[in-house]
Structures are given as C-alpha cells and as structure tokens.
C-alpha cells in the first residue's frame, strides 16, 4: 500500500511542477513579446487607441489575467443578460444538453443495430460499405444539410452530434458481439438456453466492455464536435461563447473557454471510464 501511495504522491508532485513550469514559460513568453511603447503620440490620438498600440502590449494575456477571468466566470456562472450574453454555467449546460441528447439517441439506435450486425455475418457484410463510407465524413460536413432540411439550428446541432456519435458505438458493438468467445456460446447451446436469453445473459455482458469503449470514444468526439458546431450556428452553448470572445478578439476569454471545455471533456471521459469499470470482467 505504501508503495502505491508514494507513487501517486510522486506523480502528483510532478504534475504540479510541470504546471508551474508551463505557467512560468507562458508568462515569460508574454513578457518577451512586450514591444516598445509608442513614443511621441499626440495624447488626444493615443486616447483613441488600445494598449496594444500605445504600450506595445502583447495580444496574449498573462497567466494571472486568465486566472482572474476564470475566477470571474466561476463566481457568477448562471447570470442571464439576454439572448446573447449568458453565464458560463448556462452555456455549458446548453452544450451538455445537446451532447447528451444527440449521444443518447445515437446509443439507442447504435447498440441494438450493432447487436444485430454483430450476430449476423450477412447483415454485417451488407451494411459494411455504408458504414465505411459514412464513418470518415466530418460531422460538420452534415451541418449545411441539417440546417437546410431540419430548419432549426439547435436541432441541427443535436443531429450532428447524433451522426458523429453513432459510428464508434455501432462498430464497437458489432465487433464486441461478433467476438464473444465461441466456447461460451456453445455452452449456452448445450444447455439449450433460448436465443433471447443467450443475447441478454451471455452476449451482452461479454460484449459490454467493448460497447462501453465505443461509447467513450463517441462522447469524446461529440464533445469535440459540439464546440465547432456551436461556433458555426451561434446562439447558445460553449462554442458560441468561444466565438463571442473571439469576436471581441479577447484571447483571455478564449483561453478561459479552452480551460472549461477541457475540464468538462475530462469529466465526461471519467464518467464513462467508471461505467466501463462496472462492466469489466477478468477472463
């Protein structure tokens, strides 16, 4: 026990050191970019300019500026000042809602369909070309089509999440089901277990870890895609938040958004990793 404790402590300390080094490097980079202040400017003229132009400030913020911005968002996450200005908590909630809805719908379709495909080599062969063709399409390529046919930007975003989440789950489910050990199926057959019972009591538990891996890949992709989709259609969500900060050329705002996107993505991944542990088994 003490060795694992030591191990964790060491890794944790190392993480902190890396973080500090990174922050220090960042700070020095910004300081190095500081240009000379403009001299001999007419004060009336200078009053109309920003600090970047008058004092030679870098466009990049220093770490403590981002920290202050982060704290500001965390301290008031749920304000609502109109349709174009909402707190970070509300924006994240919009994005999470879209991701979970799209992902949930995709799971409802992909898992049963993947099951069927995995059980029947014929269906697998028949559907394979379509899956292979559609799988590599960038989800955002669906966006114009979705906007045009669905005629609602929020639903379009959900559709895009749906279409990008479905492939990893479908393929992993089919793979997991097709690769259940033959011995187990044979044992079930010998015991004259009904096909339905075999599916639920033998195949599903056996394929569950693979299915969960598919889900984990899917939710990662979905979270990547929602940011891009929301940047495109705007309105609400963390992607819109990034775009709005970018519109103001506020790198500080964009960096804080990156931190939040990373944290939520990590949280989603941890959640599914825990779910995967629940269904894991040792052979």
């Amino acid at each position: 026990m003490t060795t694992t404790n030591n191990f964790g402590l060491k890794a944790g300390l190392l993480s902190i050191v890396i973080l500090l080094l990174f922050l220090f490097g960042w700070h020095m980079l910004v300081v190095a970019q500081q240009g000379p202040a403009a001299e001999g400017l007419d004060p009336e003229y200078a009053a109309l300019l920003g600090k970047q132009a008058t004092e030679g400030d870098s466009a990049l913020p220093k770490p403590h500026e981002v920290g202050a911005e982060l704290w500001q968002h965390i301290s008031d996450p749920f304000y609502d000042a109109g349709p174009n200005d909402k707190g970070i908590g509300i924006q994240l909630a919009y994005s999470l809602f879209r991701v979970l809805t799209g992902f949930g719908l995709a799971a409802l379709l992909a898992v049963p369909l993947g099951f069927l495909i995995g059980m029947s080599p014929v269906i697998y062969q028949a559907l394979n070309p379509f899956i292979q063709l559609l799988k590599p399409v960038s989800p955002l390529a669906w966006m114009p089509l979705a906007l045009y046919t669905i005629k609602d930007s929020s639903l379009s975003a959900i559709f895009v999440i749906f279409i990008c989440s479905i492939w990893p789950m479908l393929i992993n489910t089919a793979f997991g089901v097709a690769n259940v050990r033959k011995e187990w199926l044979n044992v079930a057959k010998t015991l004259e277990v009904s096909p339905l019972r075999t599916a639920f009591r033998v195949i599903l538990p056996a394929a569950a870890p693979t299915i969960l891996t598919g889900m984990r890949i899917s939710i990662g992709i979905a979270w990547l895609v929602i940011v891009a989709a929301e940047m495109l259609v705007g309105g609400t969500g963390i992607g819109y938040f990034v775009w709005n900060e970018w519109n103001n050329l506020s790198i500080t705002g964009v960096v804080s958004a990156i931190v939040f996107i990373g944290l939520v993505g990590m949280f989603l991944d941890i959640l599914l990793a825990h779910a995967a542990k629940l269904v894991a088994y040792a052979e």
Binding site: G82, P83, N84, P144, L147, Y148, K151, D152, S153, M231, L232, V233, G234, G235, W243, N244
Partner: peptide, 20 residues
C-alpha cells in the same frame, strides 16, 4: 423582439430561409 447575434451572413441567410 429578441435580437440574436449571428456568426456570419451565410448562417443569417440560412436561419432566415428556415424561418428561425
């Protein structure tokens, strides 16, 4: 009236065409 910020004119056109 809600005035809604839009990322660009292509999106504005599409959202107008779709009736949003």
């Amino acid at each position: 009236v809600e005035v809604i910020k839009t990322a660009g004119w292509a999106v504005s056109r599409d959202k107008s065409l779709s009736g949003e």
